[in-house]
Amino acid sequence: MKIAAVQMVTSCSVQGNLERAQELIAEAAAAGAELVALPENFAFMGRADRDKLALAEPLDQGPIQGMLSGAARAHRIWLIGGSLPLATDDPERVGNTTIVYGPRGERVARYDKIHLFRYDEPTVGGGSRAYDEGVVLRAGSRPVAFAVPRDEHDWRVGLSICYDLRFPELYRALMQPPCDLIAVPSAFTYTTGRAHWELLLRARAVENQCYVMAPAQGGVHENGRRTWGHTMIVDPWGEVVGLQDEGEGIVLAELDTARLADVRARLPALGHRCLGT
């Protein structure tokens, strides 16, 4: 199965971002991708954390979800919709939510980001820039995976978002039964990405013996933030099979059932676990 991870440099304009996402999805589909994934916050990156509250959409309503459903249906693809602000019962909190659509435009999965990012990023001059997603986000609590049916192999895909990448226990939970592919839509800061992004992605692929796709934000944004980018696809042996450093574009790769089976057969580490469930 061919997959595509989309890299964006999202602005403060929802309409502009949706139009650009549609173009990149179409490019990926034209290149033969059957599953496409967008980055975290693909539709909006505001100037302040609270800006996203006004854009929160109820489940299955609104222009962001409408675009995703329509694009999946138009191109007959599986579409992992990065993340978007989903309304909750608290007007001061939204979910950071991945919604997955099937080839008929139907919603097939929903995952709410479990781990909320907090970090004081050093800045030039000795100061810092504070990030705290808990100010406006409500954390999820449930691991989520879905299946992409294929004639020769049903691909089990696990969902996660950005900061989740630092918590291997989430991925262990997703490996019961084992996932073949893990998606990590992200918007890593430049500082944390430079230090840890590739290291963590390759570790998750190796320890879970599965493919990992990580569509990312990559560049300098309208709000002044700089994200690390380096959208990446990693195979079950930890080898990087697709990469884009900065700027918008798509990263394509072919998932190989034989490669997956060979890695797991030669080193059956998933069956050697002694701790946990």
Rank of each mutant, 00 (worst) to 15 (best):
E121H: 06
Y171K: 01
Y171R: 04
G81H: 11
R73C: 10
A87D: 01
V124P: 12
E92R: 14
S69D: 03
S141I: 05
W155D: 03
R172V: 07
R129F: 12
I182V: 11
L55C: 08
G102A: 10
P91F: 10
T98P: 01
P143F: 00
Y190D: 15
Y111S: 01
I64T: 11
E152L: 12
R104H: 04
M175G: 05
P103T: 03
L181A: 01
K113C: 05
S69E: 13
F42E: 02
A54R: 09
I114A: 03
I77M: 11
V136M: 04
P177E: 12
D112N: 13
S83W: 04
S69Y: 06
R104P: 06
E133Y: 02
R156Q: 07
Q176E: 14
M67E: 00
I77D: 11
M175E: 09
L159Q: 02
I99K: 01
D49M: 12
Y190V: 14
R107F: 09
Y190A: 15
P177S: 04
T123N: 07
L59S: 10
L116C: 07
G125F: 04
V144F: 10
R50C: 08
I77C: 13
A74H: 01
D120P: 15
G126N: 14
K52C: 14
A43L: 14
N96M: 14
V184W: 05
F44M: 08
A74W: 03
G82V: 02
T98K: 00
E92H: 09
I64Q: 09
L79K: 09
I64C: 03
G46N: 05
I182A: 13
G105C: 07
R172A: 10
F167C: 01
R76F: 08
M67D: 04
L159G: 04
G158A: 08
F146Y: 14
G125V: 06
D180I: 06
R138Q: 11
W78N: 00
E133G: 00
A48E: 15
V135T: 06
